[in-house]
Each structure stands twice: as structure tokens, then as C-alpha cells.
Design a binder for these strands. Structure first.
Lengths: 339, 339
DNA sequence: TTGTATGCGTTATCAC
DNA sequence: GTGATAACGCATACAA
């Protein structure tokens, strides 16, 4: 035998009709068939090394047990653990993941979604972060990661950005800081925006120096953009004693910018990040940040998607996962300053 | 219209038969059809938002334009750029990537390959690193990344491990080191083994102290394993002035072990890594290592796979990509020592 | 150059 | 409880 065995081969060997073999092999319909016959079919399948042709099955059932996972760039250190979590949860349910990168380009995202839908993808997990994006319309179950659609109505999994920012601001305030600036992530990214809103909120609710609501938006979640934005921030607000960065990469940009300005961290300026990505505990100085449960976010997103595929009409859930303050050496007591 | 448009809908709208539409839409057969008719068909397809049903196409053509990508763990920082390179090259050719993690478990690898083959995967890129593994037999095109099968016969893409080790040893020798130890990666991993062989070779060919062929094998490519192995290495060879680590993570383990032993890097002991993974240039001290072209390795692997899918009978190529020494502050001049 | 007919492997719907 | 049959959407050998 040259080509892979089909269900007909199995049926023939078991002395039954293909339809019966199909029923016997499919867990959902197995009850319809005589236990002894089913046994023979399974035995035959095993002997032949039968594996169902999923193209044929997809064509017939219009499902594929494949989910599309779309992210901006796998090289951004936050995504690998998320994708790994997604993959693990999908595999446990017999699903596989088709992966695609968009580099943040909405056009690429549309193309990818279209291509994946053509491949009968059963659902999507979108970890692209634009706020204004519309979700690929229509009937394909979709779950958002690290992002929410303003109107709601689409299930999502996010870390508790607001709580994280509050933890950081409270931590800084506890060290005596009152003039805390913010190098925010891009306005177009929902995480950047949420953390920015939380920063404003935290400063107000802790009764800190309102005049110190000093904010500069970075162009991107990168070290270079963080560097540039930090220089601007301090040019306008030289008296800051602490900087809350939109994420860890931006915080590293703060490090280099502050070095350029001749300010030491944390003696003169405290710096905080967000994400606790790998190796920020080994930077110089080790970065105070907020740990988000990347892997769990991925698992939860996959779980939500599977749930949704199972019952598309169920009310949309959104899951917010807790975060944790990681206090390290990049933050220290505020020194009294003149000016 | 509720369901996705089929080629029949397109044909009807263009006023032709489905077969003609199929030919017009397929680049390979487009020449067979009148240019004007072809134009009408394309126009109709565009208007309807037609996307071919790949399940049907797969069933018919026995190809899927999907490749399986199997790696140990996406969270290991070497893999994201490789996978990204693979994905980019595949997408340019109209292919997509199904991703799977094995955690180094050969059993999981077999299961994944079987599951992916059931999904009509056209080929595999295997970045799992065991030396003794057999390749999933038979007719499915396969490319190995970072790994070679002893007998050859399977295309592979690797970095030039031997050259990298020679660069490092020469660099250390140039700084006056003669007693250079090696904390090797696991023997079972082909990269670990190749670098170990290259270490022995380099020491010999540079005429360094033969007695200093001091080697300890780490249990895994992790910081913890590197830490433990370094302690053992120095217990047996206290006089070493330099350590060549099997990769960057192991080198970080050397850092912590040497700190525990009260030896400063690089003043008392120089340390080198391998891979130049993100942020090792920001460690304390910045790590001297060898940069391997991760992204290019991925692209090249995908290219090789596509080539192989195109002509399965062509002779198997293996590609070795060049590496680059990144000299940083973890290596310094050998200090004269007593003992 | 275009239309007709057929089959890829599976499963859902009928009939028995 | 099982068998027969049709259909999923597409591509191709063959006929016109």
C-alpha cells in the first residue's frame, strides 16, 4: 500500500461499511454502533495505522480544529510565553495553532485573518494591540489578548493594568516620591492607554503633586522610543524624582537617557517598568516592575476561545488576571532636591 | 449570502463555468484562459470577497500550503527570532506555519508530527536538538534546524558552531589565557556536542595547555545547570582563568557560580557565551559571546523546505551560516596567577 | 479556449 | 445497528 489508508480500507478490513467505521471511530457517534463491531473497527484502524484525513473532514464538517494566533512580533519578549500558553491549552483540546506576525500593520492583520479563514480556521486569538482596530467581523469566534474593544462584546484576556500601575505609584509614594513622571506607551495601543489613564488616576487618588502629572508618550514600546521620550520628559520637567515607564523596554530606554543626562538610578531618579520580562532582574540596576502572568494569559485566552467555539451564542466573558509588584533596585527613597 | 462564496458563485457572476473560473484564478493555469474572461473572473472574485476553501483544495491536490514547525520551547530566547524568520519566508510563498512545542520530549515530538501529518502538513521544520533522534521517516519533506543527523541525508541549517568556538578560544588566547575550561551543553544535544568537539580541537590547534582541557557537562542549556556545572568545574580545576560556556544561559550560570566562589569577572576569570541572545549585552558585565544569525537561520530553513517540497528528489543540501564574535566586558587579560 | 464529468475522504441523512 | 447515498468545494482529464 502506497498512500495513506482511508476509512474505506479500515471498513473493509473490519468487514463493515465505511459509514459504520466512521461512526465507530468518532467518539460522539460511537454509542450508535454495536460494541463488538466498534472493537473490530478500532482494531483494524490500529493495524493499518489509520489517521483520518483532516482535509476531507474539514470539507464535510466545516471545522478544522485549528486556531489562528496573530501577534505583532514574536521577538517581543512578552509574546513567547503567551503563545506557549495558548499552544498548550489548545493541544490539550486536540487543537493546533497557526501562527502569524503583523508587525503592528492593520493591513497585514487583515490579510492574515483572511488567509487563515480560507484555511477553515475555527477561531482567532488576536494579541495585536491597537485600540481602534475593528475585529474581523462576523461569525468566527475571536478572543482578544492584552486588548479590549471599546464597545465590548468581544471576549478578552488582559492583565490588570490599572492595578499594576497603582501598585507602582503606591510603591513610589511609599518611598517618598511626589513628583512622578510617566513615559507612556503609544496612545494607539490599548495597554499604553490603559496604563496612562491609571497613572493619572493613581496620582490623583494618592493626593500627589498634581502639577507633576508629567507625561510624555513614546512612539513605540521600544528602548529607543523610551530613550527619546525620557529626554523630552526631563527637558520639560527637570524636577522629577521618579519615572513610571509604560513597559520594561521603555524603562530600559529611561536608563540610557538618564545616564546621558548624568542622573543616577535610583539615587537621583527611580525608574519602574511593566511586564517583568526575562532578564530585567539582571539589568543594572535590577528593574522594579510589575509581573504579569504571561503564560496564564495565553492559557486563559485559549480556554475562552474553545468555550466560544463550543457555544458561540454564550455571553462574552472578559478575564482580567492579577499582577504582582516586583520591587527591585531601580527604585529607592526620594532624595530631597532643591528647585 | 450567508456562507462564504465558492468558486461556483464566482463563476456564475462572471458568466462562466466553475472550471473556467478555477483555471482563471490559479496562476499556473491562467494562461489557458482568455485574458478577457480571466479579467471578468478576477473581478467577480474580488467583488464577492472570494477566498478558496483550502480544505477542498487540499483534498483534491493533497497539499495544504502549511508547514509544521516543531521546537522544544518557544520561551527559550533563541527560538523566537528563528520562528519569526521561518514564518516570514513561508508567508512570502503563500505558506503558513503550524507551531508545536515538545519540551525536548521525543514522544511528544512523535505525537506532534503524527497530528500534523494528519492535517496534511506539506513539510516539517524540526528545531529539536537531540542528536540520537531519528527523523520522522518517509516521504514528508523535512529540514533540520540547529541539528544534524549523523548519517546526513536530511537537509539542515545550522550556525557555524566550530568557527564560533574557534573565534572565542582565539580571542581568549589573544588575551593571554592558557588555562581555559569548558562548561559544555548536554551531550545529547547536537549543538552542545559540536561545540565541545570544537573546544577540544581549538585548544589543541592553538597549542594551549593540554592539561587544561577541563570540561564539565551541564545537564541542560539553563542558567541553573550552568551554575552547578561551573562549581564542579572549578572544584576540579581551581587554576582556570577563563571559561567557555556552551551557550549564553550557561554563561549566566557561570556568573552566579563565580560570584559564589568569590571570583570576579573578568578580573580573575573571563567568561564567554554563545548565541548573543537579547540583553546579554546589558548583563553585568556585558557578555562576550558569538552572534548567530537566528532570523536568517529561520528564513534559510524555510527556503530549504520550500525547495524540497518543490523538488523532493533533489540532492539534500545543508547550509551552515557564519557567526560573529561579540567581544564585550566579560573577557579581559589573563592575570598572572600563582598555583 | 471553454464546458462536462469525476473523484479526493469524510460524515450526515435516509432507508432498511 | 448498519448500509447506501449524497454532498462538502475544488481541480483536472477529457470532450467539444
Amino acid at each position: 500500500m502506497d498512500r495513506a489508508p482511508t476509512i474505506k480500507d479500515v471498513a473493509e478490513r473490519a468487514g463493515v461499511h465505511a459509514a459504520t467505521a466512521s461512526r465507530a471511530l468518532n467518539p460522539a457517534t460511537r454509542a450508535m454502533v454495536n460494541a463488538r463491531t466498534a472493537g473490530r473497527v478500532h482494531e483494524a484502524a490500529r493495524a493499518l495505522g489509520y489517521a483520518p484525513n483532516s482535509a476531507a473532514r474539514s470539507l464535510r464538517t466545516r471545522t478544522s480544529s485549528v486556531a489562528g494566533v496573530i501577534i505583532p512580533d514574536l521577538r517581543n519578549p512578552v509574546f513567547p510565553p503567551i503563545v506557549r500558553g495558548i499552544e498548550d491549552a489548545l493541544r490539550e483540546a486536540g487543537y493546533m495553532a497557526l501562527l502569524g506576525n503583523t508587525d503592528g500593520d492593520p493591513e497585514r492583520e487583515r490579510e492574515l485573518v483572511a488567509a487563515m479563514r480560507g484555511r477553515q480556521t475555527d477561531g482567532f486569538i488576536l494579541a495585536t494591540s491597537r485600540r481602534d482596530d475593528t475585529v474581523p467581523g462576523s461569525p468566527v469566534p475571536t478572543v482578544l489578548v492584552n486588548r479590549r474593544i471599546d464597545g465590548g462584546g468581544v471576549p478578552s484576556v488582559t492583565a490588570d493594568n490599572a492595578a499594576g500601575v497603582h501598585l507602582l505609584v503606591r510603591h513610589l509614594a511609599g518611598l517618598g516620591h511626589t513628583r512622578i513622571g510617566h513615559v507612556a506607551g503609544p496612545r494607539s495601543a490599548s495597554t499604553g492607554w490603559e496604563r496612562y489613564r491609571a497613572y493619572l488616576d493613581a496620582i490623583t487618588s494618592l493626593g500627589l503633586d498634581q502639577a507633576a502629572k508629567a507625561v510624555e508618550f513614546a512612539e513605540a514600546f521600544t528602548e529607543a522610543a523610551g530613550h527619546a521620550a525620557t529626554l523630552d520628559l526631563f527637558a520639560a520637567n527637570p524636577g522629577l524624582t521618579a519615572v513610571l515607564a509604560g513597559n520594561d523596554l521603555i524603562a530600559l530606554g529611561c536608563y540610557s537617557a538618564l545616564a546621558e543626562l548624568g542622573r543616577t538610578v535610583p539615587d537621583e531618579v527611580s525608574v519602574t517598568g511593566f511586564n517583568d520580562m526575562p532578564f530585567v532582574d539582571r539589568q543594572r540596576p535590577p528593574l522594579t516592575t510589575v509581573r504579569i502572568p504571561h503564560y496564564e494569559i495565553g492559557r486563559e485566552a485559549a480556554r475562552l476561545l474553545l468555550e466560544r467555539i463550543g457555544s458561540p451564542e454564550a455571553p462574552t466573558k472578559s478575564v482580567v488576571l492579577p499582577v504582582e509588584l516586583m520591587a527591585r533596585a531601580s527604585t529607592g527613597p526620594a532624595k530631597p532636591q532643591d528647585s
